[in-house]
Amino acid sequence: MEVLLNNIRQCSICEKHLPLGPRPIASGHPDSKIVIIGQAPGTKVHASGIPWDDASGKQLRKWLNVSDDDFYDERKFAIIPMGFCYPGKGKSGDLPPRIECAPQWHQPLFDHMKQVELVILIGMYAQKYYLKDLAKRTLTETVANYKDYLPQYFTLPHPSPRNRFWLAKNPWFETEVLPELKKRVTHLV
């Protein structure tokens, strides 16, 4: 596993498309119980090299009801984004994750993690990649129907502060989905 993670951290397959250059960010351990698959690191995470080391990460840890120590314990959580490097800025936020990463690295990572009991799919890119035709028409529908994907997958919106309007429009997420997420995570951590 360490060799694989070192190979990932040296990856430069999409270097010419990355405005800040490659800095692949991923973590995992053969004993990881939960895998978090998000979009791609933002500029703050690119600078620090620590996954989810930003406002979105604070919100995610709150949703999961875990401490920083638990969240960054690779025996508990593996963190594998769809795109491992910061993809650049778009018109309304960051660009989509680079498409090269997931097909290149996800399966080899999962091949080393035989103890995984839950995969948390954050955002549309992760959900479409893993759920394929089972994903609903919209992210909201996919998250609302999270029970359809259990026990293997748990679907979430992105915890970005930019999603505060989505959260306000969908109060069922906080009252119905988050309690179930916290229960499952607490059981595994």
Rank of each mutant, 00 (worst) to 15 (best):
R23N: 14
P30V: 09
T175V: 11
G88D: 07
L181Q: 03
M124P: 05
P81W: 00
M113D: 07
F154Y: 01
H46F: 04
K169Q: 14
V177T: 07
E100K: 11
N163E: 13
L18S: 08
L5W: 12
E176F: 06
R184P: 01
P51W: 03
Y146H: 14
K62G: 05
G28K: 01
Q115F: 12
P157F: 01
G83P: 05
D69G: 10
E174H: 15
K128P: 00
R75F: 11
I36F: 00
E2I: 10
M124H: 14
Y146K: 07
C14N: 09
L118H: 04
L167M: 14
A47W: 01
S27L: 06
C14K: 05
P151Q: 12
F77T: 01
K16F: 13
Q39C: 12
P81Y: 04
L109G: 01
Y72H: 08
V45F: 06
V189M: 11
P87K: 05
G123P: 01
H112C: 14
P159D: 02
R137T: 15
Q152R: 15
E180H: 15
R164C: 07
P51T: 05
D69V: 13
R75A: 07
P97Y: 03
E174I: 08
L134N: 07
L134I: 08
D53Q: 11
A47V: 09
G123C: 06
A40L: 04
V143D: 02
Q127V: 03
F165W: 12
V143M: 02
H46M: 06
Q39L: 11
L167G: 05
L139F: 00
E117S: 12
A168T: 09
E2H: 15
Q59E: 14
L134R: 14
R162M: 09
K33V: 04
N163S: 13
L18Q: 08
T142P: 00
Y129G: 01
L131H: 03
L95R: 15
R137P: 04
R162I: 04
R23Q: 11
Y72R: 06
R9W: 10
F154L: 01
Q39G: 12
V119Q: 09
Y146D: 07
Y125M: 08
N170F: 02
K182A: 06
I80S: 02
A135S: 11
S48D: 06
S160A: 11
I50N: 05
M82W: 04
D111L: 07
D69A: 15
D68C: 10
I13R: 15
L95P: 06
K136C: 13
I79F: 04
L64D: 00
S12Y: 13
H187S: 12
L4P: 04
F84N: 02
Q59W: 04
I80F: 08
P151S: 11
I13N: 14
D133P: 05
K169C: 08
W172Y: 11
E2W: 10
S160H: 05
P19S: 14
Y129P: 00
R98F: 09
L5F: 14
V3I: 15
L121T: 00
N6F: 10
V3C: 15
L109Y: 00
F110W: 12
N7T: 10
E2K: 14
D148V: 10
L64Q: 01
P103I: 02
R137I: 11
C85H: 07
K89Y: 09
T186G: 07
F84L: 15
P19Y: 11
Y125P: 02
Y149H: 08
R9A: 13
N6C: 10
